[in-house]
Simulated scan of single mutants.
Amino acid sequence: MKTLSVPLSVLLSSLSLFQTSPGHAQEIVPFTPKDERKLLGPRYEGRLVPLAPMNHKSEAGLEAEPLVFIHGSQGSIKNFTQLLLNTPKFTDYQLYYFAYDDLHRSLKRSAGDLALSLLKLKVQRITIIAHSMGGLIARETLNTLSRAGHTEHLPEIRVISVDSPWQGGSSINCKHKGANLDDMVEYFMPAALTDMRSCSDFFQNLYNVSWPDQFSMELYFAQHGTQALDHTEAPINRLPAKIASLFNDNTPMKGSLYEMNFWNALSTSSQYPGFVNELSALHEHQKITAADVSRLLEKHYPRFPGDHASVLKTHPQAELDLPKYLQTIL
């Protein structure tokens, strides 16, 4: 992949982050939306920016696997500062940052930009750590690559999604979706915000693409905050009871847009088979309760200390936080 020429002091600072150990790294200096725009392509398309030296090799002397960070709405590389500084395992990777317009460019187009950028890497395996809205872009990227066909030639791609709003954004006035007035409202909304509506065309097609076996997505959440909902928070906290009914009585899964969007994300994640296997084993001996489902959701879809933003940071008082967990799974 061609290295981007980026005349930004902030990026030059981050380029040297891992020339020494993370413990000696410099904290990323303030990074503004204006800085982000300078990283975009000539038509404001999203681009991959290398954070660590290109051609970085692992301790075994092999070409390092790419690891890509994707921020969420109104975010930047600065959101990952503590994660970068406190996850020594990152030194085994060639690090990239996906810079994109998180307001005016549609999520589908940003996903297309990322898909093309990943293909240019010409590697066998790629790991993506995506926060918030970045998880939706990463998922649509896998969809885009899958739709293109010839999946046997695609790399193995592992997505680690952190506190992504799988339920979608606002569902206000979604019952009027497709009406002339609603179409007019969407026309004047920024493209990314239009896609974030739980009833958007983007969400209606987000979960219906089959992936090849080499694609996987893991879902993790923050213990606090409501930007990205989990099974413990209204209005999707009735989902555990509905999952119990699905197993006990074969009751079809039905619910609100939020519930169905979230359920579709769970049921297509890489953790889902393990979750189902444990539920099935439990069901052989007893009737499953909502509490049983909640306990297994907590086990297979962990929630880490912090809120939507601080989940990316260290939490020294916690037995396990996101940086510590990434050390065990990367």
Rank of each mutant, 00 (worst) to 15 (best):
H71Q: 07
N86Q: 09
I126G: 08
D183N: 15
R147G: 05
L51V: 12
Y44V: 01
N180E: 15
S13F: 00
Q167W: 00
T328P: 02
G274T: 10
Y220I: 01
N237Q: 07
A52G: 10
L136M: 08
T289N: 10
H150N: 15
P305N: 10
D182S: 13
T151H: 10
S14H: 10
P88L: 08
L84N: 04
R139I: 01
H315Q: 11
A179F: 08
L114Y: 02
E27R: 14
Y272I: 02
R105H: 09
K89W: 05
G135K: 03
G135E: 03
Y258S: 11
L51S: 05
L136Q: 03
V162H: 04
N180F: 14
A64M: 01
Y44Q: 15
S310Q: 11
S198M: 00
R158A: 03
S117L: 00
M217R: 09
P155D: 04
A138Y: 01
L62D: 14
D195P: 08
P235S: 09
I157V: 07
Q204R: 14
L8K: 08
F31Q: 03
V311Y: 10
Y207L: 05
L136D: 03
E27N: 11
H150K: 15
A290F: 08
A290R: 07
A265T: 02
H224N: 13
L107V: 00
K38Y: 12
A318Q: 12
G72F: 06
E233T: 12
S9M: 06
C174P: 05
K177R: 13
F215G: 05
L119Q: 15
S161A: 13
D101V: 07
A64H: 03
E218Q: 15
P235E: 08
N86A: 00
Q317K: 15
F18C: 11
L229Q: 04
L266V: 06
P273K: 13
S110V: 07
L219A: 04
K242F: 01
L279Y: 01
I329F: 10
T328A: 12
T87M: 06
D113L: 07
D213H: 14
L322I: 01
D102L: 02
N264F: 00
L257M: 05
L142E: 08
R238S: 13
P33Y: 08
Q286G: 04
D307C: 04
A99H: 03
G169W: 06
D92P: 05
T268R: 14
G72D: 08
H315C: 09
A52L: 04
S117I: 00
D163M: 04
S310D: 14
L282N: 04
L282A: 10
A234C: 04
Q94T: 10
L114W: 03
K299P: 08
S110H: 02
K299Y: 11
L40R: 10
C199F: 00
I128M: 03
S146V: 09
L206P: 06
Q317G: 06
F80Q: 03
R295Y: 12
Q317N: 12
F202M: 03
P30H: 12
Y100Q: 02
L12G: 12
L219C: 09
K78C: 03
A138K: 02
G72M: 09
L84C: 05
N277K: 15
N277H: 14
S14N: 09
V68C: 05
M217W: 00
P30E: 11
E36P: 02
Y301K: 08
S267L: 00
T226I: 11
K38T: 14
V123Y: 04
P273C: 11
